[in-house]
Amino acid sequence: MATASASASTPTKLSGQRVVVTGASSGIGAALARELAGRGAEVVLVARTRTALEALSAELPGSSVVVGDLATAAGCAAAAGEILAGGVPEVVVHNAGAGRWLAVDETPEGEAATMMAVPYLAAFELTRALTPAMIARRRGRHVYMTSVSAFLHVPGAAGYSAARWAVRGLAGQVRADLRGTGVGVTLLAPAEVDSPYFDHNPGTRERIPRATVLMGGRASTTTIARLGADAVEAGRRTAILPRQAALVVRTTPPPVLSWLAARTGWRHP
């Protein structure tokens, strides 16, 4: 199973390069934008909320803002057009994500489609729209943000976890498609992160399996951003973050991981 120690491809220079970060208005996305800008990247901030993006952009010299709703194909196409109008990106970080932790029978009609729209379909559509220009230049990197839940089955998070599995699958498929083009792929999979996501989704934190303490506990967004940027610069194929989480996933068979999550996680009433 691929982990943070997985083989690396060609390293990716960030200093002076145009780097797109979706879902950049808060949480891991905002932390990543700050980290990448601190390494000299010219960051393109993408999200729905203009005020939040403009406030962050004011902190980051050389950054720019693209406001768009990535939950629709049309929104992704419009965002991609605006991104390309400013130049072909060197790196695209597909970080935008949404979704509540709900069991399959708790999920309202239609909400699963919303959870799949962002992150999975948004990442697919942006990849489709931006890749031809990257291939024409013979270099670049797509970076897909998933979760450690894409490596096990977490009770009480059917739609959320399935969407993260889909992103993991997409990263592998895009890597296979783009082999030999000069465009690389990195998959980032954080374990528990101390982010505003939990404030916006009350009750979710209580569903995190207790066994996840074995993965190093709750990491800050700045820690995940630093480790994620390291993985991108090193050209890693897959990075499970932090290192303790990577060690657990690498050494524990997937059925055992899922068993631990079931034994120490949410249980249906």
Rank of each mutant, 00 (worst) to 15 (best):
V174I: 13
V167D: 02
A37N: 13
G180L: 09
T12I: 15
G40H: 02
L187H: 04
R267F: 02
S147H: 03
T186A: 07
A176N: 15
D194I: 01
A8N: 13
G182I: 12
W101N: 06
G169M: 05
G87N: 12
G235E: 07
E90F: 00
G228D: 08
V20M: 02
A96Q: 05
T212K: 09
R18T: 05
P196W: 08
A31M: 03
V143Q: 06
L260M: 15
Q244K: 15
P119Y: 01
Q17D: 10
A47Q: 05
N201F: 05
A133W: 09
P61Q: 06
L84K: 03
A229E: 02
A191I: 08
T131C: 13
V154C: 09
E125A: 12
A78E: 14
S195M: 01
A112D: 12
G140Q: 05
L188Q: 07
R39C: 04
A96I: 05
A52H: 06
A47V: 08
R236I: 05
A123Y: 01
A191Q: 10
G216H: 01
T221I: 10
A171I: 00
A112I: 15
R50K: 13
T49L: 08
M215G: 11
L84M: 03
T186L: 09
I135Q: 15
T221P: 11
V143A: 10
V256T: 12
E54L: 04
L60I: 14
I28P: 08
W101P: 00
L260F: 09
R250Q: 14
V92E: 07
A158E: 02
P89Q: 09
L36E: 04
S220M: 04
V88A: 12
A189L: 05
E106S: 11
